[in-house]
């Protein structure tokens, strides 16, 4: 649950980028970090293996300014996507306020997307959270690869595969070029903040 300090008028919101390994979660955070560097006072924390894969999480806090008079601090996290790191992945989800699910558009990775989304549902359930209720945005990443002739799943296919029941906002994106990275972030923040507001009512 987000933390609200009424006196300091400050809200801390935890957003987690989830998805299959190599889908582009870390690249999303790196893009956001570079793009807004002058507004982020910390370094990006990355706990990774020697092979440069995420071992635990990437993290940085992001001050997005005021909403309704409250200073909103968004703590952005990624999880390690590899199947064997489920214990740490679950730990990162503790107290999550919103999830961006980064799916891989490559046709070869279709199965990985399914499995990871199912794994998200299970891990949320471990904290008594429902994937149908938690603020969630889907991102279909790596759309740029179409130009290189790599076979991609169509957006319609991915919507059917992943979003037919969830019916949450979704974006085709390229974390590499930055296309739709910021709109994805803005969307999840606005949904998460709106849901907090409801919780307080």
């Amino acid at each position: 649950m987000a933390f609200i300090n009424l006196k300091k008028k400050e809200v801390q919101v935890k957003i987690v980028y989830y998805g299959p390994g190599r889908g582009g979660k870390t690249t999303n955070l790196e893009y956001i970090f570079k793009k807004f560097q002058e507004r982020i006072k910390s370094d990006m924390v990355s706990i990774k293996t020697h092979g440069d894969r995420t071992l635990y999480f990437d993290f940085f806090p992001f001050d997005i300014g005021k909403i309704k008079g409250y200073d909103i601090k968004v703590n952005l996290y990624t999880v390690p996507g590899q199947v064997k790191y489920n214990a740490t992945r679950r730990l990162v989800l503790q107290g999550v306020d919103g999830v961006v699910f980064v799916a891989d558009s490559m046709a070869l990775r279709r199965e990985h997307n399914f499995l990871s989304l199912k794994n998200l549902q299970e891990n949320l359930a471990a904290y008594n959270k429902n994937i149908f209720k938690i603020p969630l945005v889907l991102q279909y990443n790596k759309r740029d690869l179409a130009k290189q002739g790599i076979q991609l799943l169509t957006i319609e296919r991915m919507e059917k595969d992943l979003n037919s029941k969830l019916k949450v906002p979704s974006f085709g994106a390229s974390a590499m070029s930055g296309e739709n990275v910021v709109p994805t972030l803005k969307k999840i923040i606005s949904i998460a903040v709106a849901s907090l507001h409801k919780e307080l009512k």
């Binding site: 006072k41 910390s42 635990y56 999480f57 806090p61 601090k73 703590n75 740490t88 730990l91 990162v92």
Partner: peptide, 19 residues
Amino acid sequence: HDLYSLAALAAGNFGAVNA
């Protein structure tokens, strides 16, 4: 110190140690 990062790491660390 960068206390926000410290807090994120401490929570992660404690979670890991408890696991």
